[in-house]
Design a protein around this nucleic acid. Structure first.
Ligand SMILES: [Zn+2]
Ligand SMILES: [Zn+2]
Ligand SMILES: [Zn+2]
Ligand SMILES: [Zn+2]
Lengths: 165, 165
DNA sequence: AATTGAAATGTTATATTATAACATTTACAC
DNA sequence: GTGTAAATGTTATAATATAACATTTCAATT
């Protein structure tokens, strides 16, 4: 359960992050091809920036990074459109509690993810396959609530940062 | 399990909401007294506005309501300070996915709440005592993550709205 | 009752995040 | 190559939230 893959939520472990990046980009190409969606250079660039680390980035962070990298100025709408696309294709998540965006690490499903957010170093891991969804499902059924999507954001300290205390 | 109480998350059921309001305000008085915190008229007014329904309100909604009710103009900072206080005393929750605030319905603990949000009528119920926290706790231990607080927001359709489809 | 220090509120300005509306360019199917 | 839809550019603005400092209110102490 700890093979090196961005899909295993290894953000809190020491790892060769270039592999995360490579895999994420490869997945993006593949996914977009399947969906007949266009991973344009701009969208790809945004995805690359998001994958520079496991720390979520705000839209204006991305904007600044893009504008420093090239000469031409880009406007917020451009970033938000790229982010909309990446979310729609399941390549990126928005973390509501941070107003920030992070690459999707999930193997199977982009939905019903659970995020552990380190409040100190800001790194995030994405937990897949936890039992939360099924519990919520049960609970929703009891309440006669038709559950469509959930977002679970857990704040705390990652292994590194908790020992630094 | 369905006695009338705002503390039972009955937002999706027909109920006499004035009882919710009364109980919420009574709890607020009691809680603030215990904590030696001051439930000033302004803070109380904000809490009353939030409890007017089970639909979360944005800070600027509250601002507008306050400013229409009285003559003197109030600035955003005032609202946000009241909201900060109400959150700190555990009387109000902020729903990150909505940028909005809702009265706390929890019996015991203000923490680790789970919200079911109707995407159509906007009403929200707060689920307490579900098993999510313990699962997250287990999952966090496995990941060596020291979990401090979680927020779970589930979007879907309430019983009323799902039949209206 | 006057003093006083902390808490609460007022006030002004500004930061941060996100979207609307319309023009232009680009890529692809035909 | 032409037409069309998608993508991007551009400008303006909406929506949410906070910073910084002045003033007022409250309650404890003298
Ligand atoms: Zn990595
Ligand atoms: Zn950390
Ligand atoms: Zn009610
Ligand atoms: Zn509803």
């Amino acid at each position: 359960m700890s093979k090196h893959s961005p899909l295993n939520s290894i953000a809190f472990q020491n790892h060769d992050h270039s592999i995360c990046i490579d895999q994420a980009l490869a997945l993006a190409e593949q996914r977009c091809h399947q969906l007949h969606a266009r991973l344009t250079p701009q969208r790809k660039r945004v995805l690359e920036l998001i994958w520079q680390s496991h720390k979520p980035l705000g839209a204006y962070d991305l904007l600044e990074m893009l504008n420093q990298a090239s000469q031409k100025r880009i406007a917020p709408a451009t970033i938000y459109r790229a982010l909309d696309f990446l979310q729609a294709t399941g390549l990126v998540h928005r973390l509501a509690s941070l107003n920030a965006f992070t690459g999707c690490c999930a193997h199977d499903s982009h939905a019903d993810c659970c995020f552990f957010i380190c409040e100190q170093c800001r790194r995030v891991i994405e937990m897949e396959g936890n039992e939360v969804a099924s519990i919520i499902d049960k609970s929703a059924r009891q309440a006669n609530f038709s559950y469509q999507q959930l977002s679970l954001e857990v704040v705390g300290l990652c292994p590194d940062c908790r020992t630094d205390q």
